[in-house]
Each structure stands twice: as C-alpha cells, then as structure tokens.
Design a protein around this nucleic acid. Structure first.
Length: 488
RNA sequence: GGUCCCAUCGUCUAGUGGUUAGGACGCGGCCCUCUCAAGGCUGCAACACGAGUUCAAAUCUCGUUGGGAUCACCA
C-alpha cells in the first residue's frame, strides 16, 4: 500500500514535455530548437518527451506534413515516448481527434464561469483604419446573455463560439524559468475565442486542456506566448488545475530585426540537410543558439547534451542564426567522421557528377578535411570528370619557382618516370617524383606543381600532384600529362 | 499607440560588485606544407547612452535610446 502510494507520487512528478507543432510542412529551425529544449528538459530529468500534432486550423493543414515532423525528429535521434504513431496512455495525440474532449471542457468552463457563449458574427476582414488604427478591446455584448437563453439559442441551431471571460482586476503574476517574474495587468487581456464555430478549439484553449490532460510538467514555447500566458492561467484556475512550469524561449533570428521564417525563404531543417549539412551538426549548433553549458565546450552529441542540459542556462535575448558558424561546425563534424562513414555520405554526391572510373576511396580521403558541407564536393571534383580548358599561365608560380618552360621540361621528365611506376600509391609516386627532382637538380615544387596543374587544370585542388594521380589512375594521369605537353 | 520583454567583440556567448572583460565562429599574421585545406601558434575586435547607489559597477536602481513581441474563430 505504502509502496504503491510512493510510486504513484513519483510518477505524477515525472517530467513530461511535449513538442506540439502544427503540420505546416516546414520544419522551422526555431521549432526544432524548441523541440530540442523540450526533449532535453524531459530527458535530463529522466522524464518523457511527447509528440502532439496541433492541427486545429484545418486551413493550414498540409498533406504529408506530419511525415516531415516524424522524419526530422528521427534524423536527429530525438525519440518520442508517446505520439500519434506509437500511442501512449494520454491519447489521442492529434488535436483534431480530440474534438469532443475540447467541446466538453468548453461547456464545463462556461458552467464554471470562466467563459461564455458568443453569437456575434465573425468579421472576416476587418477594415484597417490605416497605421493609426488602435485596436480597441472587444466588449462582447453576448457576455450579458443569460446562460439559459444562450443554451436555448444553441439548441435552436444558432452558430456560436465559446469566449473566455476575463473578470479579474489587477495584475497577473507568474514565474518563468528563463524570464523570471512576469507581471501583466488583467486589463490587457482580451476575451478571446476558445472554441470556434466549427467546434474545434483555438490554440489558446487546446493547449491548456491537452497540457493538463497529458500531465505536461514543463511548457516550452516561444516568448510570443508570454503575454497570453495569464489567460491560460485563468483557465487552469477556473478548472482548479495546477499550471505547468513555464519555459519561454526567445526567437531565433535571421538578423537583428527579423525572425527566421518560412515567409522570408529562410532555410528549414530539410533545406540545410539538402545543402549538405549533417543533422547532428545542425542539432549541436542550434542547441547553442540561446543556451550554453557554462563551460567552454561547444561540441556536443545529443547524449552529452542530455547529461549537461539545464533550462536555467537558457538565454533571454534573441539569437541570430549564423550560417558561417554552422558551416564551420559542420566541417568539424565531417572531419570527425570515420573514413568509411564519410565515404558513404560522399558517394551520392559523386554519383551526381562523376561517371569516370576513379579511385573514389582515395578521393574521399583527400576530400574529407577539405570540405565543410557535402554540397562542396561537386565543386571540388569537377576537374576529374572533365579537364577544364586552362590557361598556360597557370604554370607560373613564383613561390614554386615554376613557369611554362620549366613545366615543359619537368612534365616530360615526370612522364618518363611515371610511365614505369608499378606501385601506383601516393607514397611511392611522391618518392619517385621527389627523387626525380633531386636527380635533375630541381626543387620539388618545380616538378610537383606542374604535374598538379596538368592533372587538374585548376589553381587549387583537393590534394597535391601525387594524390590526384592516385585518384585519376595511371592511364588518365599519363594522358593528361601528355596532353599538357602538347599544349605547352 | 497600450502592455510585456530584451541589450557584452561583426555573430554565438562566459561573466551575478573588485577579472589584463574569457572562449568559439569569422577576419589578419606566422609555422607546417606537393597547390588548397586540415593542424599548431598568434593578432585585431565588445560591456548602447546618461544619472544614481557604493571605497569599487559590464554586474544593483532609475531614466534615455535602440530592438523585439503582443493586442485573430493562427498557432
């Protein structure tokens, strides 16, 4: 008996957070960061992370959008403990399937005095009175309709909404984990619609009902919800429920004055992945946008984050998304990959631009430390497929002490040597050409530089002369040198 | 406009009354070097402004300025 009680208490105190995106077909970076923080709060406290789909706005529903949500979370390995696809004890996890629940609670809230029925006609597009338009607080005449009359009109089939009552005077105070104490006058709150005429709830109502019913302990959301939080508290209060712990997070910005947004054409998680960013790197980067561990460590795996994350170290001020730093971090992750893993990731990119048979394994080795996004592969390997038409002036290099004349001589010498090389490895080729330079009284660069140009036709290449030779293979290497000799 | 919130290098940030204001990205230089990278070393670079409290303020208070959010049958 005692034991059961103890267990139950623990269970009720368990941390439970929820990621509640609406299926708009776009995984916003800011949303993903919120999801991460929700996940980390739950997991750092040994709790559960719940996925809930907020589709109460049927106008915004996009086909296939939930798959994007599932796939994104899977790609970054944020596994959810309950959700539409896997179920759980607090389902359903899709708001449109919870319509009846909201209806019941909405009517109950009216009985409790926290809301009233409203029959006002909804103005679709209210005329804007120019820039001076000062929103006037809506004073709902329906608030004065008696409950019995309202019920009668509803019974007669009249269209209605349930609208919140704000009867309190004075100041609402609540505590937020990141912003601290927030005070807002009840006068500022408007009596918003809770249940729409289509019978579905607005976010303002659904989130309260769901968060309570699903026993969510920490509500994490954008700070744009701060000003309406007192309204939610009023609903909790009317029902006699305990409000959750609030964690409002600042937005992720594109620049000092604009949020990162789909509307501005800013990159979504999918876009970044498409551009060659690694999911792990993206996740690591956004974790640090508004949070820091208090140490100087910056590279974190998800499991490391679970260990060190605390919501108390979340920042209050907005953070600008810096693609340059993400790119650096992505490069770091690419370099940290095993040879094999990098090669696997590179393969699809090779397939897009290479048909020539070359040593792809070795190509991957030289490429790995040289690129910061997988998309940079293409620009680095283009010369392999087709030798570009290059200017002979490329053979001039002061530091290497070469020019067209020296190139002509050393390429001819190199050709003779390479023709007879049997072991076509980087080490061996380098040793052979170095020996050649020494024998001929040339500087290493006077041999190697022209060879590299002859093989690539480019000023900069991923790898030196002998590395390119290994990638291209013996036959193509000899061909390209012969070709260069003809041009010179 | 009312209300709420925010303010340290260009960017992400550390800092909770006494620091040469630290780190990371980026940028410059040097080393290494078969080009370019990677790696190592190094340099430049910030407390928005003004009062006040205090022996002492990036840190506390007030104001100013700047920015953001919110005021939907969207979330």
């Amino acid at each position: 008996m005692q034991k059961t009680f103890f267990f139950r208490t623990i269970k009720q105190m368990k941390a439970r957070t929820r990621f509640a995106p609406s299926p708009t077909g776009y995984m916003h970076i800011g949303n993903l960061r919120t999801a991460l923080y929700e996940y980390l709060i739950a997991k750092s406290l040994g709790g559960d992370f719940i996925l809930r789909i907020e589709d109460t706005d049927q106008k915004r529903y996009v086909e296939g959008a939930t798959d994007i949500i599932y796939n994104t979370l899977k790609q970054v390995h944020m596994e959810w403990d309950e959700g539409p696809d896997i179920g759980g004890n607090f389902g359903p996890y899709v708001q449109s399937e919870r319509k009846n629940i909201y209806g019941q609670y909405a009517h109950k809230l009216v009985e409790l005095g926290g809301a009233h029925y409203c029959f006002c006609k909804h103005e679709e597009d209210e005329a804007e009175d120019g820039e001076d338009a000062v929103p006037v607080k809506f004073d709902d005449p329906c608030k004065h309709i008696s409950l019995s009359e309202a019920k009668e009109r509803i019974a007669n089939g009249e269209s209605f909404v349930v609208r919140q009552n704000i009867n309190k005077k004075g100041t609402s105070v609540f505590e937020d984990v990141v912003y601290g104490k927030i005070e807002i006058d009840y006068d500022e709150l408007d009596e918003g619609v809770l249940l729409k005429s289509d019978g579905l709830p607005t976010y303002n109502f659904a989130n309260v009902i769901d968060d309570h019913l699903m026993q969510i302990s920490h509500v994490v959301r954008g700070n744009e919800y701060i000003s309406s939080t007192p309204k939610y508290n009023l609903i909790y209060e009317a029902f006699g429920w305990e409000p959750p712990i609030y964690v409002h997070v600042p937005p992720v910005m594109k620049d000092a004055q604009h949020k990162l947004s789909k509307r501005n054409g800013d990159a979504s998680f999918q876009d970044l992945v498409k551009k060659g960013y690694l999911p792990d790197a993206i996740l690591n980067y956004i974790a640090l946008l508004g949070w820091n561990p208090g140490t100087e460590q910056e590279i974190f795996s998800l499991s490391e984050l679970k260990k060190v994350f605390t919501a108390e170290r979340l920042n209050k001020s907005p953070a600008i998304f810096d693609i340059t730093k993400l790119t650096w971090m992505n490069g770091y992750y690419i370099r940290a990959l095993s040879k094999e893993d990098f090669h696997k990731l590179a393969l699809p990119y090779y397939a897009k631009c290479l048909t020539r048979k070359v040593n792809l394994e070795f190509l991957s080795e030289v490429l790995q430390p040289r690129i910061e996004t997988l998309a940079q592969i293409e620009e680095n390997v283009d010369f392999i497929e087709n030798l570009p038409n290059y200017n002979m002036a490329l053979y001039q290099n002061k530091k290497m002490k070469t020019d067209e004349n020296i190139a002509k001589v050393s390429l001819a010498l190199a050709l003779d040597v390479l023709k007879n090389v049997e072991v076509w490895s980087n080490e061996n080729l380098f040793a052979e050409l170095k020996a050649l330079a020494e024998k001929e009284g040339l500087k290493n660069g006077q041999v190697l530089y022209p060879v590299r140009i002859a093989l690539s036709g480019k000023e900069t290449t991923p790898g030196g002369a002998t590395e390119l030779a290994v990638i291209l293979g013996k036959i193509e290497t000899l061909n390209r040198i012969k070709q260069a000799l003809e041009l010179l």
